[in-house]
Design a protein around this nucleic acid. Structure first.
Length: 517
RNA sequence: GCGGGCGUAGCUCAGUGGUAGAGUGUCACCUUGCCAAGGUGAAUGUCGAGGGUUCGAAUCCCUUCGCCCGCUCCA
């Protein structure tokens, strides 16, 4: 093997999100959904290169989580089984999980202050008399309450109203006329509060042809509940013992208030979730192990730089199910649109036994559904460590991290994917489209293609072909030239350095295989 | 949901009431012997959509959809 050229790479300029979005479209990574009809907010399609990239990410996750050996904190192999549960489930699932009750809140906007309030947290104070002003404040907020009381007193003094006929009402019971005489918590004028509107974050649909209350169902807002509801099935059908995990990759749907930032916050998205079931007393150990292993995993698949951080949640930002327990942490990436801040890629949460016991209660069997631990001769609801990752966010982070500008090369940019993530592993070209070179190159191409994704290109100048592969992020380009045709070799061009080395034709498939796996 | 900005060829953009353009990319052929080279030729547009004003609208007005930024939201 001999070096031919080694150009010096130039330092990368700061990344602009619009450039990344443009490349994604131009090269077929990501398109806007239903674009020819003007698109639809919060939905995206993956093109030929994009679907490969995303699938490589999901396959890497599934391989590393479910299929390959993984050694846990106790030195034993970690046992995880797969699952593919349905998107539409019995709606009671979402009552048990807290999604129907807790996240279907009526909201009120104030046109004057631009503030938004939970309607069921607004209390209205004032006279029962018609046309008298009412003052709203936020429940349990003493400052707000005092301000409303003061405002009311001043108003009633001015208008000489009788303050003895006051009453408190929830904003929820107000009529349109009442709202028109209500002053919002941060407002000066009356009538600036809108009516209460439901911000249901779950997509509703109906199962069965009859569309009524009884057929109401939801598109799942997370894949996790499909795992929890199958916990008992998996235990009964598989020889699993705590500690063990169930892994699932699947779509989930949330009616986000504001889809924003390319695919980062979409209404339809794909999750890669593990629910790992443990003995309650081992939560700290497993939580820390999962957190660290997952952080390490993201680094290995191409997010190795300082743009990736692990962030432990503060107590006061913990979700309702994680108030007690070992903690919650996020693995976050510094996207161009969040910089200098970070956006969440994966959350690792100790959910305690919140979900299993909630489902046990709601399905009516209660404590009878506790897991029996043979070894300890004890019954309990296992605690759960949940590493929950976004496949679309992961794909986007890889795209952003890989995007590298380089003024010295023709394309001006290349995608620095790791070989494992790269949609195309190798481009195979004849240097010129004659003299028997295409035939040799095509034989090599077919040989590589038996195991790896490769592209054959004999059109146009060699420079254009390299440039195209740079934008697709192909790590290796193999060119059959005249020297090679006589000596049985070809040059392999490395994407990042543009350096070339000469390798014997029969060794090239192994060369690729070594670097891709 | 609110406020601001923006939507013209795949991409970057010009065109401000009178025949839709340029560069670049794409494709074909020739040439070429390692980095978007050169030559010749070709294809490509609901001017985001709908409505209105006008003899005539990419251009002016209204509505709407989408994208970006700031709020808001984010289990």
């Amino acid at each position: 093997m001999s070096e031919i050229t080694t150009p010096t790479p130039s330092p990368s300029a700061p990344k602009k999100m619009e450039d990344i979005v443009a490349l994604c479209r131009r090269r077929g990574f990501i398109f806007q959904s239903s674009e020819i009809y003007g698109g639809i907010n919060g939905f995206w399609d993956y093109g030929p290169l994009g679907v490969s990239l995303k699938r490589n990410l999901k396959n890497a996750w599934w391989n590393d989580v479910v299929e390959r050996e993984l050694i846990g904190p106790d030195g034993d192999a970690v046992h995880i089984v797969g699952l593919d549960s349905s998107i539409i489930m019995n709606p009671k699932t979402w009552i048990a999980s807290g999604h129907v009750g807790g996240f279907n809140d009526p909201m009120v906007d104030c046109k004057e202050s631009k503030q938004r309030y939970r309607a069921d947290h607004l209390i209205v104070l004032g006279s029962t008399a018609d046309n008298a002003r009412l003052y709203a404040y936020i429940e349990n907020d003493e400052e707000q309450c005092a301000a409303a009381t003061k405002g009311l007193a001043r108003y009633e003094k001015r208008d000489a109203l009788d303050p003895s006929v006051h009453m408190l009402r929830s904003f929820m019971v107000l009529t349109a006329e009442d709202r028109a005489r209500t002053v919002g918590p941060h407002a000066k004028e009356v009538g600036t509060l809108t009516e209460a509107r439901k911000f249901g974050l779950m997509f509703e649909t109906n199962s069965g042809a009859v569309r009524d209350e009884s057929s109401l169902t939801y598109l799942r807002p997370e894949t996790a509940q499909g795992i929890f509801t199958n916990f008992w099935n998996v235990c009964d059908s598989t020889r699993v013992r705590v500690p063990f995990g169930i892994a699932q990759i699947g779509k989930a749907f949330r009616n986000e208030v504001t889809p924003r930032n390319f695919t980062f916050r979409s209404r339809e998205f794909e999750q890669m979730e593990i629910e790992f079931f443990i003995r309650p007393d081992s939560a700290n150990e497993w939580y820390a192990w999962w957190r660290d292993w997952r952080f390490n995993w993201w680094q290995q698949i191409g997010l190795a730089g300082e743009n990736l951080i692990l962030r432990e949640h503060d107590r006061d930002e913990l979700a309702h199910y994680a108030k007690v327990g070992a903690g919650t942490s996020d693995i976050e990436y510094r996207f161009p649109f969040t910089a200098p801040g970070f956006g969440e890629l994966e959350g690792i949460a100790h959910r305690a036994d919140f979900d299993l016991s909630a489902h046990a209660t709601h399905c009516g069997k209660g404590d009878k559904m506790r897991y029996f631990d043979q070894e300890k001769n004890e019954r309990y609801f296992p605690h759960v460590i949940e590493p929950s990752a976004g496949a679309d966010r992961g794909t986007l982070a890889i795209l952003c991290e890989a995007y590298t500008t380089d003024a010295t090369r023709a394309s001006g940019v290349y995608m620095n994917f790791t070989p494992r993530m790269a949609p195309v592993k190798a481009g195979v070209f004849p240097l010129v489209n004659k003299d028997g070179l295409p035939e040799i190159a095509e034989r090599l191409f077919r040989d590589i293609r038996k195991k790896h994704v490769a592209e054959f290109d004999e059109k146009q100048s060699i420079g254009k072909r390299y440039a195209r592969m740079d934008e697709a992020g192909t790590p290796f380009c193999i060119t059959v030239d005249h020297d090679g045709a006589t000596s049985g070799t070809a040059t392999i061009r490395h994407r990042n350095t543009q350096a070339q080395e000469r390798v014997a034709l029969e060794q090239i498939p192994a060369f690729i295989a070594e670097r891709v796996e």
